[in-house]
Design a protein around this nucleic acid. Structure first.
Length: 580
RNA sequence: CGGGGUGUAGCGCAGUCUGGCUAGCGCGACUGCUUUGGGAGCAGUAAGUCGGGGGUUCGAAUCCCUCCACCCCGACCA
């Protein structure tokens, strides 16, 4: 490709709204352009990268016996009615009517569509297991798209769905899929990806893993032990907390005027946060049901854990009116002396297993000293002791006991054991050897393609631009001609360009005759891994300059004589690093 | 959805408070000349529904009403 014809202008300045590295360089390098919030066009270089990512994904999906299909983006609502998700999913599902007022939707995932497909095409145990996958547009009407391609509304996803006769077969296949994912991210050149235990949320199913590209701008918090044997999303992470019991002291009501928050109460009474109990009220958004969480003052409630326990897909903080309705006083709320059959009380182990905590008295400006769960609350039917705490950095690892570490990650892929949630609801079944019908057992496996591109960029860049791995680079080699009108530079560069194309090398040829610095800056923004500079300076010695974008080796001089085979060799060597 | 902010040439911005001539500046684009190793210089050219609608006024980018879009923080999120 000639730079003089390449569409997608490079921009010298950082775009004002871009905060993350990938967002800046995606715009500055002319990879993508915003069309509407969270909706992007891919320009030629961006498209080339995406194509390469997709090719690698296809190879690895085919390797684990996947069959590529393509399902529609626009689906009739009735299909989603079957699974119950037409109602259960919130506003991120874009619903609309066709000309006959028939309710339709833009698919945000394809469990329903694929289940519909498989139930009509597969009916015997002899055909199972089977895996179908597609690379296709998803639409999610996100409340807040952000950070360029990291969180968008429209995007390409590789989504795969496997169907099995039983759970054991699913589990075996799940392992293969896990391995395929590790190969994919390695081949994409991602420097650090962790698979971590994850919250299955509304997808259903019990077991799931997220593949996290570790980097600062990640939206998720990853909890790991120092030896990496324990790896979990903070949403579900737990720790081997130990709480000290001491002799119970008698309950005592104390006057605590104006002390509503834990900090205020602790300061007023001269105790530490860990000597207090915190009352937090949530409401199940769907049902309006009030949920009362009690946790030690130095911990935070983990909403994902609490929601899972309470059977609530979505929680929100309860308003004061709802709290008052069950006889609690916000700021001084207490699980003690509560009109309690109206509300479920979830008590975190931190509060249940500690002694003599300060808790509210359900009365303005009063708290109790010396709350002891076993004596004061245990045994009531609506009270549940559970782990609803958010893991903190340094908490003891549940496997090794070592202090847990925290980092940020971009979720570039996820895999789920779905079980029969969709197959049962949608009557996707097979006949076994005895002619007996069973719902198929399903797994699903996703990768966000554009997000993967952004994640690679986040992990592999310098101050001038991205440093693409050879496997997904928009071009393999860049040729810069400096002063093409002088000393035959242009002719030599043209000849080199033509010869490399004949060898099947993907060449980006800067034929514009711009100033050297200008060309180098553009080249850096495009991140092509290998670069050849032809100029009068070295041409007089019959040489060109050779430079790696990653700077791993010094700039070299290569003889024009035999240059083409040498460059071909180097491209192939580099490419081989990412072979399967 | 809550809070904050921004909309003026392809991009980045000034002008708005305090209404007034033909709406400016930098980058980019185009033409010519000179330049050429890390985003060159000079000269010239083209490019604007001042986010939309309504209002006030002799006169609105500027004041008022309203709608919209986009960004940031939070909430939410497979």
């Amino acid at each position: 490709m000639r730079m003089s014809k390449l569409v997608g202008r490079r921009i010298k300045e950082d775009p004002k709204d871009a905060k993350t590295v990938s967002h800046k360089f995606l715009i500055r390098g002319g990879y993508v352009r915003l069309v509407s919030a969270g909706i992007y066009s891919l320009l030629p270089v961006g498209k080339r990268i995406v194509d390469k990512i997709e090719r690698i994904i296809r190879e690895e999906m085919d390797r684990i016996d996947g069959q590529e299909v393509l399902m529609p983006v626009v689906l009739p609502a009735e299909l989603w009615e079957e699974s119950g998700r037409y109602k259960s999913v919130g506003q991120e599902l874009l619903r609309f009517q066709d000309r006959n007022d028939k309710p339709m939707l833009l698919a945000m995932t394809h469990e329903e569509a694929v289940t519909h497909l498989v139930r009509t095409e597969v009916s015997s145990y002899k055909q199972l297991p089977v895996m179908l996958y597609q690379l296709q547009t998803k639409y999610r009407d996100e409340a807040r798209p952000r950070a360029g391609l990291i969180r968008v509304r429209e995007f390409t996803m590789k989504d795969a769905y496997s169907f099995h006769t039983d759970q054991q077969d699913l589990e075996q296949y799940y392992e293969r899929a896990h391995e395929a994912y590790e190969r994919i991210f390695r081949r994409l050149g991602m420097l650090r990806v962790l698979s971590i235990a994850a919250n299955s949320g509304m997808m259903g199913g019990a077991v799931s893993h997220e593949f996290m590209a570790i980097c600062e701008c990640g939206e998720d918090t990853v909890i790991t032990s120092p030896d990496q044997r324990y790896r979990a999303n903070r949403e579900i992470a737990t720790a081997a907390w130990k709480f000290e019991k001491s002799a119970s002291l008698p309950l005592e009501k104390v006057h605590t005027p104006g002390s509503k928050s834990i900090e205020e109460v602790a300061t007023f009474l001269g105790v530490k946060a860990e000597n207090t109990g915190k009352a937090v009220f949530y409401q199940n958004v769907r049902t309006g049901e009030l949920i009362f969480a009690v946790i030690r003052g130095d911990f935070e409630v983990n909403e994902a854990k609490l929601g899972n326990l309470a059977g609530a897909a979505e929680l929100k903080f309860a308003d004061d009116a709802a709290i008052a309705a069950i006889g609690c006083v916000a700021g001084y709320a207490s699980p003690l002396s509560l009109a309690s059959d109206k509300v479920k009380i979830f008590v975190d182990r931190s509060a249940a297993e500690s002694s003599n905590l300060v808790v509210g008295a359900n009365e303005p400006d009063y708290h109790y000293l010396n709350f002891n769960f076993d004596r004061d609350l245990a045994g009531q039917p609506q009270v549940v002791v559970a782990d609803i705490a958010t893991v903190r950095e340094g908490d003891p690892c549940p496997v090794s006991g070592a202090p847990l570490e925290m980092c940020r990650g971009i979720e570039v892929g996820n895999i789920f054991q779905l079980g029969t949630k969709y197959s049962a609801a949608m009557n996707c079944s097979f006949l076994d050897q005895n002619g007996k019908s069973h719902p198929m057992v399903m797994g699903c496996y996703g990768i966000g393609v554009g997000r993967a591109m952004a994640a690679v960029m986040e992990q592999s860049n310098d101050e001038y631009g991205p440093v693409w791995p050879m496997s997904i680079a928009p071009y393999q080699l860049q040729v810069c001609a400096i002063l093409p009108g002088k000393d035959g530079v242009g002719e030599k560069a043209e000849a080199l360009y033509a010869a490399l194309l004949r060898e099947g090398i993907e060449v980006l040829y800067d034929d514009r005759g711009e100033k050297a610095g200008f060309m180098f800056s553009d080249a850096d923004l495009l991140g092509v891994p290998l670069r050849v500079v032809i100029s009068p300076k070295t041409l007089q010695d019959g040489e060109v300059e050779f430079k790696r974008r990653d700077g791993k080796t010094e700039v070299e001089r290569l003889k024009l004589d035999g240059l083409v085979p040498e460059l071909v060799k180097r491209v192939k060597q580099e490419l081989a690093l990412f072979a399967n």
